[in-house]
Nucleic acid binder design. Structure first.
Lengths: 187, 187
DNA sequence: ATACGATTTTGATTTATGTCAAAAATCGGG
DNA sequence: CCCGATTTTTGACATAAATCAAAATCGTAT
């Protein structure tokens, strides 16, 4: 079970905790194109993606579909602000491949936190990890040009390039798909 | 004491904890232009800025000084990844105004965490807050044009516009100072 | 294997923003 | 209060990337 492995890497293993995790995290297999969470709702779950690929996206003022982030297997994924603050999310999440997910509800997470205070550390770790990713993203968007950002993505999440459609990758990079196609062409 | 107020807003107050905070967070007043932390070092402190204004910045490959973030009074501030993972930081922090800071060392923080497990919650809160900020930043940089980003900054951190020099604001927005000057001119 | 729709590429043109240079305004120390 | 240094503005031009349009390619269901 991938979730267990990820958790083990964060804290010293503990069988009682693992049992609780198995109890609180339900497993579900969903097909490609499934909308796992949709805009306007309050997030009621945190997901862990054991297999497959998902993307979180939003529609900008012009109504354009913009990919905010990709989540390949072995990652936690959630509209964090919506989930933690229990407010409506501007983002949706959809699957780009047939996927296997684990999900925990807010109640489930709170039970875990109460029973195993060490879970707060896992939470910190996950948040910190999200934050580092976001930081790198900002640096890239702030002062790299399009080919450099593509290069950066290739280095950090190379497999996404083969797995996600062009348009999604382009909006993730903050460019149009025509520009991305040209960048690819020149290499 | 501002730090206490901020902490009180996050968890239910507790005099013993406050006393420990006073013990572990030293206070220091520093003048404008002071370099509080510099690139290449491993961060040994987390700062809380009670009064004044600071900025975190880095030099990109072209050697250009780029402002990554501004920290006005009543904010926690740190090269988080460097501090939490104890590795060298690509960022420096300098004061843009005479400031009053509180700072806690990693040891100090660990003592607090051990003595008051609830501090882990404060940590999660702070990380979550940083993450939300970063998320908004990414959305702005990903698909807003320069005037829109300026507008967004005006709405979210309007006072910075009067307090920080043009060049720093421009690099924060991912544009040149000439472009920023023109945006201001047209309004 | 074929055909249709979706995705990607290519081309021509426009636009936003960068670059380089110099003038104007502002700031801070003596 | 004044002067040199720094910061901001303005101008002319260059360039990266957007837009609009159409052609080519790919993937999938029949």
């Amino acid at each position: 079970m991938k979730l267990e492995e990820t958790v083990s890497a964060l804290i010293s293993p503990n069988e009682a905790l693992f049992e609780a995790l198995r109890r609180e995290f339900s497993a579900v297999s969903l097909p490609r194109n499934e909308l796992v969470f949709s805009v306007g709702n309050v997030a009621r779950h945190i997901f862990y993606i054991e297999k497959g690929l998902a993307r979180m996206f939003y529609y900008n003022e012009a109504g354009k579909d913009i990919t905010y982030e990709f989540f390949p297997e072995n990652n936690f994924m959630a509209p964090s602000e919506s989930f933690l603050e229990q407010k409506p999310s501007p983002y949706s999440i959809e699957l780009l491949e047939d996927s296997e997910l684990r999900l925990v509800s807010l109640d489930g997470l709170n039970r875990l936190l109460e029973e195993f205070p060490v879970v707060e550390k896992i939470k910190s770790h996950i948040l910190a990890h999200f934050l580092y990713q976001a930081n790198r993203r900002i640096v890239a968007l702030q002062f790299q040009n399009a080919p450099q950002r593509y290069e950066t993505l290739e280095q950090t999440k190379g497999n996404i390039l083969q797995r996600a459609p062009l348009g999604h990758i382009a909006s993730y990079l903050g460019i149009t798909q025509e520009t991305l196609s040209r960048i690819r062409g020149r290499k």
